[in-house]
Design a protein around this nucleic acid. Structure first.
Lengths: 342, 342
DNA sequence: CTGAAAGCGCTAACAC
DNA sequence: GTGTTAGCGCTTTCAG
């Protein structure tokens, strides 16, 4: 409602001075500044970022694109990103991107093209060449979370190494009958995460010279996905593994529910390890590798804002690979047969 | 990058004509319009909503305030709101409001005051008088989801009636030993939802003349919350109920996990009914009352945008109470003892 | 240190 | 139907 002109009038200064006093840019005497600030407070003045951005080019608004809101990992990233942005005075505009679709195209061609953002954070979205091109045309800093984007700094974990680590953990306990349950290799999405985790798993198994036939099953990356697959995989005692490496904690939780229904004790008869650090891990006796979504969110925001302050030239493709910490949230077990390894 | 002036030059018209052609407001000959549109496409022109909003007062941006992102109900509302807004060409700026805190104050006093929004949707947040006042001062339409806000239209379910319905469902199956597990009455938040559900529960019980001493327990509204409480409540066979009405599906799921660990069969030995319509209900044999979060989100957006088009005078406080449908997602059972009810 | 003036990109009156 | 003009609220030269 109130404009800077009113503040200026009330403080008996020019608009320019009021602007300087309020924004902190440029010289203003302490006395004048105090008068302006008090005038602003009196009439409840707040700058209009719209008007300001028209002249400065800065909007104090960051766009975030994300494929899911309700999956735990994404929700955590979102919360941390929003919080970090707010602390710096930035608004967060959210786009929940569907898979390839007309609506998705519209986000890139229309919404993101409106020059509304100082920068864009892309969370766990595999972008097409055309989409990356659209984003680069904005000439605004861009940060990815979850996987590489051409010419864009990225925060990510090393999926292959993480999967291998999880596998090695189970192997070190003496397990030989290990199964990996992850996303479908056909419906490859995100950053081929499904493949990478499978690759890491297989690498770990092969290094330990454990046979790997029939030891991979695919399902949806959700609790019910893991549950229904678990009922079928664990239902057959002949091919029942002693340990499972699940590609996400959601799958792992579903598997554990299925196992319990079948009377299989977790973890004594079946060890399960997942990836994420889900808050339900403890109650399900789930071992999990922490992915620290909140850290990833904060790192992304910091990186983006740093780039905004001091635009770096062309080393933009530098990516940050996070270290994964093996956190034993609960007791994984040695296999029932008690085979010792090495 | 490109401005409407360039489009105008390329199409050999004045800026105003280009504006009319592109926005569809005002008379433009079909021929001219085509020329302008093609010119715009050639140079990849997209209007700057910032500049436009400076003169029109409209921003094509809606602010959403919400207390949680990762809880299923809220995530669903958020997804549906975002989708509905996008369809209408609106951006969604998200504020994840913490409980009363300096950060929260800042959202109301600073972020929401920046005149950046055409309207605001408040999801499941109990607002203080001061906060409502701040919102009203924006002179922008405002819609609430989840509970009443003074002078604001609201989308909500009838919590008392819903709780009573759930209770009556259990009573009708013949249960007498029914317990209600909900949010703490001390940490009252949201819209006294905890109280309302307790009230509805007690009303149902009393109408059926079933005693209600020691039949309410409080916990956090999460899966672990329900789980840990369940371990203690169900661990004592002497006071074990035959049915539980949980204030949320998350609590209910946690309870079921605890029950299963204790060897209690669900639903044959213990019936559990929750509220929400959570996607995990089926795999946990959970009966649930649907709350239809996506519908609530869409209704809120429709109501808000309708108000934007044609601002209604002062009947703003009209609220929409959604009907709750009793959806039996899986089999609730009669109590083990098989007492039949008149 | 402060003021006057120009202009960011756009739309809304008002002429023609 | 279309062009001209003014101005939304702000920051930023450029004088003083």
């Amino acid at each position: 409602m109130s404009t800077i002109a009113e503040v200026a009038r009330l403080a008996n200064v020019a608009k320019a001075t009021a602007s300087r006093a309020l924004s902190g840019k440029g010289y203003v005497s302490e006395e004048t500044r105090a008068r302006v600030v008090s005038a602003a407070r009196t009439i409840g003045y707040v700058v209009s970022p719209n008007a300001a951005s028209l002249v400065t080019g800065r909007t104090k608004n960051v766009g975030v694109i994300i494929p899911y809101i309700s999956r735990w990992f994404f929700a955590e990233v979102l919360e941390s990103v929003e919080q970090a942005l707010l602390e710096q005075g930035y608004d967060m505009t959210l786009y929940n991107l569907p898979q390839a679709s007309p609506e998705r195209d519209r986000v890139f061609e229309y919404f993101l093209a409106r020059k509304r953002f100082d920068g864009v954070i892309s969370v766990g979205v595999e972008l097409s060449e055309a989409e990356v091109e659209h984003l680069h045309q904005l000439r605004r800093p861009l940060v990815g979370i979850g996987g590489p984007i051409r010419g864009v700094p990225t925060i990510a974990i090393d999926d292959v190494a993480t999967a291998r680590l999880a596998t090695e953990h189970l192997l070190s306990l003496g397990h030989k009958e290990i199964v990996h349950i992850g996303g479908s290799q056909d419906e490859q999405m995100d950053f081929a995460v499904h493949s990478k985790r499978l690759i890491g798993f297989l690498a770990g198994m092969r290094a330990a010279e454990v046979p790997t036939s029939n030891c991979f099953y695919a399902c949806e990356l959700t609790v019910p996905g893991g549950y229904y697959l678990g009922r079928s995989v664990l239902g057959d005692p002949r091919r029942r593994p002693t340990a499972i490496f699940a590609a996400s904690d959601e799958i792992a939780i579903g598997l554990i529910v299925a196992a319990r229904e079948l009377g299989i004790l977790v973890p004594s008869e079946l060890s399960v390890i997942g990836i994420d650090g889900h808050p339900h891990a403890e109650m399900f006796r789930l071992t999990t590798l922490e992915q620290h979504p909140r850290n990833q969110g904060r790192l992304a925001v910091n990186s983006l804002l740093a780039n905004l302050e001091a635009p770096s030239p062309e080393d933009e493709s530098a990516s940050t690979i996070l270290e994964t910490n093996l956190v034993i949230r609960s007791s994984t077990s040695a296999p029932p047969a008690g085979l010792s390894q090495g």
